[in-house]
Write a protein that binds this DNA or RNA. Structure first.
Length: 573
DNA sequence: GCCGTTTTCGGCCCGACTGTTTTCAGTCG
């Protein structure tokens, strides 16, 4: 059992206990165990009970349950809970606005055990018969169901990438020498992905058989000589296509997409008396093969520079490729530091020293420690006194980190009326201030706009953190006048963040592109809550690449001194 | 369920919003 599977069991136990109305601290123990297991860099299954108990939050009971799971593949307690409630009940919990109490009520009063049951109950008017279920609550639930259906079958980029890596790794082991290339939305780096498309290049070597025999396969949807599809746990559909070497480039081009990009490229081929398909580029007149072995040869034959997959969205990249004006995109190695992270002082998992050491190991030359401010009570946000005390600790450590500059910062909440959560006097004493919205995300657009504009006016705000506060597949972006906020950011010299949290990626690619066009300066920050998450820069970089950004548009590609000089606080206001 | 210079029991998790309930329960971050 891998860490993710183990974590899932404990997550389910936590959810089921919540529905049961168990002790909140017990629930938290299971939930925290799920997080610790899921994030652990090594295989939990290899640890003996003593080693397990050394993990924070794992005691005698949980260690025993982990061993039981590893040894038998099951956990009696989990099984007992699943006998009390059908497993489909957990999908109700994923609806925005529905929590454990509501799920318990729906189940006990109406026998609702799935989202489908819930939809039926709403249609029948049975939901309204329940205590606390009025018209507005019902409308909220209807909307949550719609949102869920819209996102069904889609997965976060990072998760999709991990699943694809696992499948590719397995196939490489099974069929040595075969070349495997993930294509589709994954190769383009889209923030969420539907299917996983993988190309296998080469002669028939039994790769299809190995693929459908992959142990984790839940269901084989299709199996053939050149194409097979399977479904994996978690709702991932994976398509494998076998392609001869001479069609490698054509297949990569064809299956990488996007649809809009391919239509434009094929149209261009037709205009030049050629046709393009997944096998190659051919002349229409005599069906002569012009290109196909490499993507470069195809684009070149159409008078285009090779276009990075991140840009293949039909957003003007073809014109740029023709004019040879494609941007040189930022890469992960361009980044020199990370300007947003949390430690155990608030809701981070690792302490200051550990985070600093991990950042140094990653090759960063500077990091900013930016805890939450007091308004975020649940995260243990800091008031003025604790903020300054923490800043002093960070600065004390700064001198002792060879080659790593530590900046003392804060992620300060933007309150409902646009005021900041800490005084100007406090903010002025820090090295960097990120201002972020964490509450009241559903205010009227005009109100949110005013709120953000007011926050940007504070002279000590350097960065607007996760500007839309969206959560992918979970919650839409806040609605506000993006143009007005970007103009204000330019006017005041405030940078906007591309937040690398897997379910944020906020700014999105399209907003980051807009920000760049409007002259807004950007930073790519992990918002890491553990050393592991410091590695999430690649996803923000991917977002930036899709926005067409080069290293010069991103502040934290500069060295520490230059970057600091560019922060707003160091400019005339 | 975990944890312990507050140590084997009793803390641990707080504030605000929403909708509906006329005094509060549920959800969210």
């Amino acid at each position: 059992m891998d860490n993710r599977a183990l974590a899932q069991v404990f997550g389910q136990i936590a959810a089921l206990l919540e529905i049961k109305g168990e002790n909140a601290f017990k629930i938290r123990a299971y939930r925290s165990a799920a997080e610790i297991i899921g994030d652990h860099p090594e295989a939990i299954a290899k640890l003996d009970p003593t080693q397990l108990r050394e993990l924070p939050g794992i005691g005698k009971d949980l260690a025993a349950k982990i061993r039981e799971l590893v040894e038998t593949g099951e956990c009696g307690y989990h099984r007992e809970l699943l006998q009390e409630f059908p497993p489909t009940i957990l999908e109700l919990l994923r609806l925005q606005g529905i929590g454990p109490k509501t799920v318990a009520l729906l189940y006990s009063a109406l026998g609702i055990r799935s989202v489908d049951d819930l939809s039926t109950a709403i249609r029948d008017g049975r939901l309204r018969t329940l205590k606390g279920m009025g018209a507005k609550k019902e409308a909220l639930i209807v909307k949550a169901i719609e949102e869920r259906q819209r996102d069904e079958g889609r997965h976060l980029l990072a998760h999709t990438s991990a699943v694809a890596d696992t499948v590719v790794g397995y196939l490489r082991e099974q069929v040595p020498g075969i070349e495997l290339i993930p294509v589709g939305s994954l190769r383009r780096g889209c923030e969420t992905c539907g299917d996983i498309d993988i190309l296998a290049i080469g002669a028939e070597t039994g790769v299809m058989e190995r693929f459908v025999d992959y142990p984790a396969v839940e269901r084989v949807l299709a199996r053939g000589a050149s194409k097979s599809s399977v479904r994996l746990p978690g709702g991932y559909q994976v398509d494998l296509r076998l392609v001869p070497p001479e069609s490698r480039g054509a297949a990569m081009q064809y299956f990488t997409g996007s649809k809009a990009h391919n239509i434009a490229v094929r149209d261009r081929a037709i205009q030049r008396g050629m046709k393009l398909n997944e096998y190659g580029l051919y002349t229409i007149a005599d069906d002569r093969r012009v290109a196909g072995e490499t993507e470069e040869s195809i684009y070149e034959a159409l008078g285009l520079a090779w276009i990075d997959p991140a840009l293949r969205e039909g957003r003007g990249e073809i014109d740029l490729a023709q004019e040879r004006r494609l941007p040189a995109l930022i890469t992960e190695s361009d980044l020199r530091g990370d300007l947003h992270m949390h430690t155990t002082v608030t809701d981070g998992r690792d302490d200051l020293e550990t985070m600093a050491a991990a950042a140094r190991a990653l090759g960063h030359t500077y990091i900013a420690i930016t805890e939450h401010s007091q308004a975020l009570a649940m995260a243990g946000g800091l008031d003025e006194r604790r903020t300054l005390e923490h800043a002093a600790r960070i600065r004390a450590l700064n001198g002792r980190c060879d080659g790593l500059t530590l900046l003392a910062g804060i992620e300060c909440d933007i309150l409902a009326d646009g005021r900041l959560d800490l005084t100007d006097d406090c903010l002025a004493q820090l090295d960097i201030v990120i201002a972020s919205v964490h509450s009241q995300l559903t205010q009227e657009p005009a109100q949110i706009t005013d709120r953000l504009l007011r926050a940007l006016e504070c002279p000590w705000v350097d960065v607007l953190g996760h500007p839309t506060s969206r959560r992918l597949l979970r919650r839409d972006a806040m609605r506000f006048d993006v143009e007005a906020v970007m103009q204000a950011a330019v006017r005041h010299g405030v940078a906007m963040e591309i937040n690398c949290q897997l379910e944020r990626l906020d700014l999105s690619d399209t907003y980051a592109r807009l920000a760049h066009e409007r002259g807004v300066r950007l930073v790519i920050s992990t918002d890491a809550h553990s050393t592991l998450e410091l590695r999430h820069q690649r996803w923000g970089v991917q977002t930036a690449r899709r926005a067409g950004l080069g290293p010069e548009q991103v502040l934290n590609t500069r060295d520490a001194a230059t970057m600091q000089a560019l922060l707003r606080r160091n400019r005339p206001h």
